[in-house]
Each structure stands twice: as C-alpha cells, then as structure tokens.
Write a protein that binds this DNA or RNA. Structure first.
Length: 432
DNA sequence: TCTGGGGTCCTAGGACCC
DNA sequence: TCTGGGGTCCTAGGACCC
C-alpha cells in the first residue's frame, strides 16, 4: 500500500502560515512577473468567474471584487516549507518519495496499522506542526492513490481529508466517478481523443483493450491502465536522483531589443544553472539557448530559435559555460525584434567524477579552485555577492518585478517574521 | 498594457557498425 | 534484372507532470 500526501492549495497555504489573520480570505499566488494565477486556496477557487491558471489581468475584476490577496511567487519560501513537510513525513515511515514540491508518496507496507486511521494521524501532525492542510489518498498503486486523494478532497466533509481504496467496490466506484480528463497521466491531448471515443471516466478507460492502449498511448498509457486496475507498476522512488538537465527561462520585465541586455540575462541564468549543476556534482556536455518573441502580440514579427552548443569538455565552470552560451546567443539573435524571453539549459549531464577529457583542451585546475571559492563566498554571504561581470549591473532593465513577494521568512535572517500584528495574532492562537 | 517555469519519459527515424 | 541481416546510439518531437 502507498499513501499520497499533498498540501492543499500549497503555495497559498504556505503564505498563510505567516499571515494567520488572513486565513479566511481568498488568496492566489501569481507566476513570475505576476502574469498568471498558479496557485489558489479553496476560497479563491470557489469564487464565481474564477479560473485557475488564467492571466491575472483577465481575472482582475474577480480578484478586486472579492478582495483576493495576491502574492508574487516566493519559491525560496516554498522550497524551505516543502523540506519541512518531507521531514515531518519521515517521522511516520522511513520510506518517503518526494514527488513534487507539495506532494509525497509513502510506503505503507510493513506498517502494522489501520491505514485510514494512520492517515488521519499524519494529517493532524502536519496541521499542528507546520500549520499546513493536507489531503491523503491511500491505495495499492500510485495512480489509485491519486484517485483516492481526489475523493478525499472533494468529499472532505465525509472523509475528513483521508480516503482509502482497498477493495474492488471502492476502486470501481471511485474510477466511475473520476472524469477522464482528471486522471493522473491523461493530459489534454489524450483526454480529448478518449472523450471523442466515448470514454468519459477512468473506469471506462480501464476497460479498453491493452493492445489499443499500448499502440496509441505507448507503454506509459498501458502502465497507467494497469495501475488503475490495481496492478502496481510504479514503485516508490526514494532516491533523489541527480537532475538530467538543469535550465532556466524567464520572461523579461519588458520586451527587449537590446542585445547587451539579453546577453546579461543569459549570462545571469547560466550562472544560476551552473550553481545548481555544481551542487549536484554534475558537469554539462552541452548548453542549449533559446530565444523568443511574445507570441501573444500578433502585431509583432514573431521569432523563435534555439541552438545547442557542445562544450569542448564537459564542465560546470560558470565562466566557460557563459562564454559558450553567449556564442550561441549571438548566432540566433536577430536584431530589430522585440524579445520576450531567453532560456538556457545545461544538458548531457553526468557526474563530475567521470569526466572524459579532451585531447586538445586542457582544464586549468586553478579554475576549479576559484569556482569553489566563489561558491563558498556566495553561500556564506548572499547569492550574487561574487559574480561574473557579464552578468552585469542592469538587472532592473530586464528582470521582471515581484512587487507582491512576501518576506523569505525562513531563509533570510533580515526577513524573519516581524514582531508586529502577525505575531500577536499567532500568540493569540496559543502558538509561538 | 498585462498571458509561468522547470522538469521527465517514450518513440520513430536517421545514422552508423559489422 | 538482381542488392542482407542484425544490431546500437542519438535526437527531435510529443506527451505528460506540478
């Protein structure tokens, strides 16, 4: 048996931990540049006319009318809260898979407990210790956990946030209830295709012949079908595997035509990715750069291009990566256009312990030492304390604004929760 | 005016080997 | 006129996830 534990309205719930006075207000977290709604609490989701993932400007009326609280994304906070969430879960079983920033699978086998009851215990503990509401789905396969978790949330008054599928009757009932487009692993494309065939719910999907599923939806689809039938195909993955690619691509604050500014952004993204690369002890054998205009502005000339630059030798050295990334950028940059976004991605990653050398290119051991020193200083002080000049001094001209970002309460000493009304409210609730 | 970002996995088809 | 058979590796593109 597995359990899926996921945080309800995760990012908003995490924001509200530090704003207990606003607990009963609808709230949303916006994407980078305050563009789209990427998270909402239940109060917001239930508002008439509210649509998740829509651009904020289209929701302006609804957000204003109901005084919805808005937040710019604060990933530093979410990542730290997520870490605490996982730590908390490890108190209940040592077999935990962090599936995403707000979800984890637990192995419930070998636990001599009543599953549902245990689920409630976990739920209460997370609420008490982290102030985060979670839903829990328990079932013999991961895909069925996802189903159970949907039931748990939808019928919260009955389930109290925990639902278990442990017999054929509950499995079939739940699958018949779940719409095909809401099945984990069925995306927009296949949902449409299946609906056109008359497949409306998850149960009908499980009645399709294996051969059809295999040839139309690959082994991924077939695995899903079996999982929904109660045959476990996906095991618990406890090991935090190193990433196979590390990239970043962010929209600019305004549309840019100036090559130097785009180069500065590119350079700074590479610097960020290279840091992540080194932290997981990987090197990249190539770097991918892509550049694009704003496809929503149909009146503008559109352009999209990408280039893969192979490095002379696999590396995680910021300076080397930046140099090659900028070479690539130069090749795909077309003057006179209004650019929306540049992205870089380190690809072809493998452990830095097994670098294949290049007969014609020698790595200077000093650069490794230099890089380590830079990393150390940035860790000790603040990210960006030491950086390459090519990452520049004009951030304000390309970086998107995050005016509504809350303090990074748990990771920055100078942004720690202030002794103001919020704290008084916390004390009033008997917390400290 | 304003429309996110960071990932993974699978497959077909091309290029190549002996 | 007739032109093998058995493989591997790589990559772009499609599909999905949160």
């Amino acid at each position: 048996m597995f359990a899926l534990v996921d945080i309800n309205g995760a990012f908003v719930s995490m924001e509200y931990v530090f704003r207990p006075g606003d607990r009963n207000k609808p709230g949303v977290v916006l994407s980078n540049g305050d563009g789209c709604i990427i998270a909402a609490n239940k109060l917001a989701k239930n508002l008439p006319g509210f649509e998740m993932y829509s651009p904020a400007f289209q929701m302006e009326e609804v957000l204003k009318k109901y005084n919805v609280l808005r937040f710019s994304p604060n990933f530093e906070l979410y990542v730290d809260m997520s870490r605490r969430f996982i730590e908390e879960l490890k108190c209940f079983t040592d077999r935990v898979e962090m599936y995403s920033i707000d979800e984890a699978f637990l192995d419930m086998d070998f636990l001599n407990v009543d599953y549902t009851e245990y689920g409630h215990t976990i739920r209460k503990a997370i609420l008490k210790n982290l102030d985060l509401p979670v839903g829990i789905g328990i079932a013999p396969t991961k895909a069925l956990c996802k189903v159970a978790s949907k039931v748990a949330k939808k019928y919260i008054n009955v389930t109290n946030g925990v639902f278990t599928i442990d017999n054929e009757k509950s499995r079939i009932k739940a699958l018949k209830w779940l719409k095909i487009e809401d099945v984990w692993g069925i995306g927009r494309r296949f949902a449409k295709k299946l609906q056109a065939m008359g497949i409306k719910n998850a149960y009908q999907f499980t009645q399709l012949p294996d051969s059809w599923v295999r040839s139309n939806m690959t082994v991924v689809g077939l695995r899903l079908k079996h999982e929904l039938q109660g045959i476990s195909c996906l095991s618990l993955n406890e090991i935090d595997d190193p990433k196979k690619e590390i990239g970043t691509a962010k929209s600019f604050g305004t549309l840019l035509s100036d090559y130097e500014l785009i180069k500065e952004a590119t350079s700074s993204y590479v610097e960020y990715c290279a840091g992540k690369l080194r932290r997981q002890n990987s090197v990249a054998s190539a770097i991918l750069i892509h550049l694009e205009t704003n496809s929503f502005r149909t009146q503008d000339e559109q352009y999209y291009n990408r280039i893969v630059v192979t490095l002379p030798v696999p590396t995680s050295d910021t300076a080397l990566l930046i140099r090659h990334a900028c070479d690539g950028l130069q090749k795909i940059f077309k003057p006179g256009l209004k650019y929306k976004r540049v992205g870089v991605s380190c690809i072809g990653l493998f452990p830095d312990s097994s670098i294949q050398g290049n007969l014609f290119f020698e790595t200077n051991p000093k650069t490794i030492k230099l890089q380590k020193t830079v990393d150390f200083l940035n860790m000790k002080y603040e990210q960006g304390t030491i950086r390459l000049a090519s990452s520049g001094y004009n951030r304000q001209h390309w970086e998107s604004k995050a005016a509504l970002r809350s303090p990074r309460y748990t990771t920055r000493l100078n942004e720690i929760l202030n002794f103001g009304e919020d704290v008084l409210a916390l004390q009033f609730k008997g917390k400290n």
